[in-house]
Design a protein around this nucleic acid. Sequence first.
DNA 1: TCAGTAGGTTACTCGAAGTAAGTTACCTCC
DNA 2: GGAGGTAACTTACTTCGAGTAACCTACTGA
Lengths: 205, 205
Amino acid sequence: MTNTATAEPRRKRMPKAQRKAQMLDIAEQVFAERGYLAASMDEIAERVGVSKPMLYEYFGSKEGLLIGCIHRARTELLDRTQQAISGASTPEEILRLGLLAFFEFIGEHKQAWALLRQEAAVTVPSAVEEIEGIRRQQTDLIAAVIGSFDTDIDVIEAEAFAEIVVGSTERLALWCERRPEVGPALATTYVMEVVWRGVANRLTG
Amino acid sequence: MTNTATAEPRRKRMPKAQRKAQMLDIAEQVFAERGYLAASMDEIAERVGVSKPMLYEYFGSKEGLLIGCIHRARTELLDRTQQAISGASTPEEILRLGLLAFFEFIGEHKQAWALLRQEAAVTVPSAVEEIEGIRRQQTDLIAAVIGSFDTDIDVIEAEAFAEIVVGSTERLALWCERRPEVGPALATTYVMEVVWRGVANRLTG
DNA sequence: TCAGTAGGTTACTCGAAGTAAGTTACCTCC
DNA sequence: GGAGGTAACTTACTTCGAGTAACCTACTGA
């Protein structure tokens, strides 16, 4: 009954990188399920099939584990976005494709997204920095797009516009969760309709 | 040395309402200073000059105390906004005055704003509801404004626009903290320039 | 002046983050 | 094919803070 015959690896040893990735997967899941506060390191460890000190070995602290999750998501998002806009030619197209990539990304990573946007933001100071890093990625990109559209625009104003785009997008992404009928394409359209028209209007008018 | 002569009230008794308000003041401060997680009930109690069980007597839990803070800020913000827009006549004016009131409020209540915006996203589920309540106040108002502007617009689209306005505003408010030269008036202008133009354009064009 | 109660305290439990010190599977080089 | 080095892992704690039970005290009015 309790035999472990014929290779039934209840807890197998793993190389570092693989274990680390697995930990991030599980942690992302548990954080999203329970929220950062309610999630316990013991539960995460148990689900991974490993003891708690291993988590500390790899990530240093609960906070560190959270940062790890966020950082991975950030990297992936950036990759996706850059790939998405690589085929674009006009500023409008860059913005549209970037937005679409973003909405698609969060559609696939609902849990991670809820974590990033709702919970992590507050609970852990260093998580805020990491999240701000994500936004910085986006605002820099957008400010550059706006700048390339019309080099006469005030730097501060371009920054403000970029912030507006990012804020709109984030907020709309959250709203989309309650509105399943609004997919990435429609969400992109909404943002473009309001914001791009507004920006273009400002620049040319 | 250690005497308490001539009415030196190290810890005075207080009527409930006054004590409660004092607790909220201190809690708001400590939450803002340390963040929700790092803030301890013991510290809050000590700063109030009262023992921990009193906090639990009045607010039930740490979460309850946070909700109390958020709720108070929410009420105040709503009052301010409603008063501000009471003199407006056109939808555009309503939006502009509402935005201005918002930016002014958060300029004056940085701590409360940090609570709303940062701590609010805290893992605490009911805090999230409170915060969502605030946004709902705003989005409902804005959706109504947009609806009154042109009743032909799709309900979903009006909602999306409202989310965009709120998202832009929130994000820009955060950005303003790093840009002291951008005051409430200029921030309002930025949002109106981009968003209102975008919305109006969509409605009429 | 003393009973009733609003306002307050001491001293605990319990659960989860974080850690010190020891253990086992796996590889490698003879 | 077994010694031995080390990467991967565990057990068994400490510590700290949220939450609570049970008790105390200053003020009120009849």
